[in-house]
């Protein structure tokens, strides 16, 4: 999973200093500050807003548009997504905004309802995967010893079992599949990579003095994990959740495309599956398979963009990286130019 590796690198540098960098060390680089006068405790507690990066703005507006489409799309469409009494394979026009399928379904209505299923599966599976990776990874990393041995073995087994084939096997075994079950399957098969990262991170945080200090204060282990360790894993968890959602939406689309998605419900994956079965490509019915594909890609793009911008807040070095690379390149070009002139 290449996504996981990008998520890994995020806080690997200095997780303890995460807050330092974003608020303290980042102050000079923050372009705007809160308008309230500093000094009073209330003003001090206020989060200082920096100018949001373009990535964040684009990512959030894309995601917002898709969520709005999922929420209100089914309400504004005039057709029932399961009503096949429309003419077949009508290209997009004023009546059928996105055309119809070979069976006479309205593509717009199907896309809107499918958005709900896809997002539901994605978010549920993402939450489940994050929960499982916390349970296994953080507990294994913090407790250590035999608990770690057992949990890490389970994580290892889950890691080497390829996710999608396992999901396919489970899906074929279960006859009636609800969207919730598909989400559960994808969540259960997709947490191991994050758990490995969380385990290592928890092992590092466990040896921090502040954890020892709270043990000395008399805190119970569960509270130490929940209150002292987990908040410092928050940036990592956010990244893992976002990539978990992407993974699950793609996974659901893949399963549905293979005919193993939620039975009886409509998702972007089932639309693609039907388009393939109905020969959309050979009949030139681009309005049937391009919109769901684009929507899946857009959800992935928006979540990835949001994740990148979170990374930049956490690790300000990343923000300066493109500019730094550019200046290095310019310097190199200038040097080559000079050496050329010197030889000429």
């Amino acid at each position: 999973m290449p996504e996981q590796t990008t998520a890994t690198q995020t806080p690997a540098g200095a997780p303890g200093s995460v807050v330092d960098e974003s608020a303290g060390g980042g102050v000079p680089t923050a372009t705007t500050t809160a308008p309230a006068p500093a000094g009073t405790p209330a003003a001090r507690r206020k989060i200082r807003f920096r100018k949001p990066s373009a990535k964040l703005v684009v990512g959030l507006s894309l995601l917002g548009a898709i969520v709005l489409f999922a929420l209100f799309g089914p309400l504004i469409g005039q057709f029932d997504p399961r009503d096949s009494s429309n003419p077949a394979l009508v290209p997009p026009d004023s009546t059928y905004w996105m055309g119809t399928t070979s069976l006479g379904y309205d593509v717009f209505a199907q896309l809107a309802v499918g958005a709900r299923t896809s997002l539901f599966v994605g978010i549920t599976a993402g939450l489940l995967a994050v929960t499982l990776s916390i349970l296994f990874g953080v507990v294994a990393g913090y407790v250590g010893g035999w608990t770690d041995e057992v949990l890490y073995t389970i994580i290892g087994v889950m890691l080497v079992i390829p996710g999608l084939p396992l999901a396919i096997v489970i899906s074929t075994l279960v006859p009636g599949r609800s969207a919730l079950l598909v989400a559960a399957i994808l969540g259960v098969t997709g947490w191991a990579g994050s758990a490995v990262v969380l385990r290592k991170q928890a092992q590092s945080l466990r040896n921090r003095d502040y954890v020892a200090a709270s043990r000395i204060a008399g805190e119970r282990p569960l509270r130490i994990v929940a209150v002292e360790i987990l908040p410092n894993l928050l940036p990592l968890l956010t990244a893992q959740f976002l990539f978990g959602v992407i993974f699950a939406i793609l996974g659901e689309a893949g399963l549905s495309y293979l005919g193993l998605g939620p039975t009886g419900s409509i998702s972007w994956g089932t639309i693609l599956n039907e388009a393939q079965a109905g020969g959309a490509l050979t009949r030139g019915a681009w309005w049937w398979f391009i919109p769901p594909g684009i929507l899946i890609a857009l959800v992935g793009t928006s979540l990835a963009l949001i994740n990148f911008s979170i990374d930049e807040v956490i690790n300000p070095k990343l923000r300066a990286a493109p500019a730094a690379a550019r200046s290095v390149r310019k310097a190199r070009e200038a040097r080559d130019e000079q050496s050329k002139e010197a030889t000429a």
Binding site: G16, S17, V18, V19, D20, R208, D209, Y210, A212, A213, S214, I216, A217, G218, E228, P231, N232
Partner: peptide
């Protein structure tokens, strides 16, 4: 623990940044 407490060497590590 109520009776015996400790001050750590590194004041940057012994307080939770969060």
């Amino acid at each position: 623990r109520k009776d015996v407490q400790m001050v750590f060497q590194d004041p940057f590590g012994s307080l939770n940044p969060f």
